[in-house]
């Protein structure tokens, strides 16, 4: 409205200032300085040119030079505006800030209705901030909520990591118990019970504290499952039937390797060679190729049959003509 009227009245300086071509602080205009840039500070959203910002705020925080605005501004927070309308700019900033703190998703709630109620609250908070209604109280609640969330996450993660440690501990403990004591399982059970109970503390007393907001149907945060140590063999292990690997062997052809720097530098461990060689020595010792293949062909061994069906069709040579067709 005002814009239209000002244009109609023809006050050129005012129009220029509104269009952003004259700095309200130093009155220099883009007409004289085509490279002029305007910056705003999200504290009060007053515009001024870059050189004014440099001049006024280079030596530390200073009050806003615009008449009637006494806010203290810092140079670091000045930025060029994204939206032409500074109201929009401000609203976007506020929304961004609220969204960072109030970041629940639908899956965090029991029902959709609860989630919608939550969204309603978030929107109310946002508009309170935008329209500066109950500003103090709203800011306080928001801050409390943020702190509560942070505290909750921290306690969650620290307990999760503690649990990882303690399970490793427990494994070790129970292992030694199994090996050394070989006593009743009951005793061990009670031990692990008590330790696991001690490991998972009750969610802290945050339940009673003021968290700023209280939402109905908000699920309790669950700590993510601790990552299991990686097992390249997927739970399988080798249980040799025919040999026991000795810690060391002394035979001509390996004495060289034992002291050879070229072997040792790369982290080569002769024990790997021992176990591999011994495993190979008996790998297939009790496999009777003839019997097993006949069994496989006849489908007597059901387990083997399904898995080797494809293999069998290859070995029988059904696809031979195709295979030959490279050329």
């Amino acid at each position: 409205m005002s814009r239209v009227s000002s244009r109609a009245s023809g006050t050129s300086t005012k129009r220029l200032a509104e269009d952003g071509d004259i700095c309200p602080v130093c009155k220099s205009s883009r007409y004289l300085n085509p490279n002029m840039r305007f910056l705003v500070n999200p504290e009060c959203y007053h515009r001024m040119c870059e050189s004014c910002v440099d001049r006024i705020f280079s030596h530390g925080p200073a009050p806003c030079p615009i008449a009637g605005c006494k806010r203290t501004l810092r140079k670091a927070r000045f930025r060029s505006q994204t939206f032409e309308d500074l109201k929009v700019e401000r609203e976007v900033d506020i929304r961004r800030r609220v969204a960072r703190v109030m970041n629940k998703t639908e899956s965090d709630f029991e029902t959709l209705a609860d989630y919608n109620n939550y969204l309603e609250t978030v929107e109310t908070v946002t508009w309170n901030l935008i329209l500066k209604i109950d500003l103090e109280a709203t800011e306080r609640r928001l801050r409390l909520w943020e702190e509560a969330q942070k505290a909750e996450l921290e306690s969650l993660y620290s307990s999760a990591s503690r649990r990882v440690l303690s399970t490793a501990d427990q494994d070790l403990q129970s292992d030694t118990q199994r090996v050394i004591l070989k006593k009743s399982g009951v005793q061990r059970k009670t031990v692990s019970h008590s330790s696991s109970a001690a490991d998972t503390p009750e969610p802290t007393a945050a339940g009673n504290a003021d968290t700023g907001f209280r939402f109905h149907g908000l699920k309790k945060r669950v700590a993510p499952e601790p990552e299991k140590p990686f097992d390249p063999y997927g739970g399988w292990s080798l249980e040799p039937q025919y040999y026991v690997v000795q810690p060391d062997y002394d035979v001509d052809f390996i004495t060289g390797a034992k002291t050879d720097i070229h072997h040792l530098a790369g982290g080569y461990d002769l024990r790997d060679f021992y176990s591999r060689a011994l495993c190979e020595a008996f790998s297939g010792f009790g496999v009777f190729v003839q019997d097993e293949i006949i069994a496989r062909e006849n489908g007597v061994v059901e387990r083997v049959r399904t898995e080797t069906q494809a293999a069998a069709s290859v070995t029988v040579g059904v696809r031979d003509v195709n295979m030959d067709d490279v050329f």
Binding site: G235, W236, S237, L238, E239, P240, Q241, Y242, C279, F282, S283, G284, F285, G286, V287, V289, Q290, E292, I293, I294, T308, A311, V314, T315
Partner: peptide, 24 residues
């Protein structure tokens, strides 16, 4: 899950595809 040495050999392609009876 335990494996024996023989199981390891049974898993090889040499056994699966390239072992035969004399008549085969």
């Amino acid at each position: 899950m335990k494996l024996t040495e023989d199981d390891l050999y049974r898993a090889s392609t040499q056994f699966k595809h390239w072992s035969f009876t004399p008549s085969q």
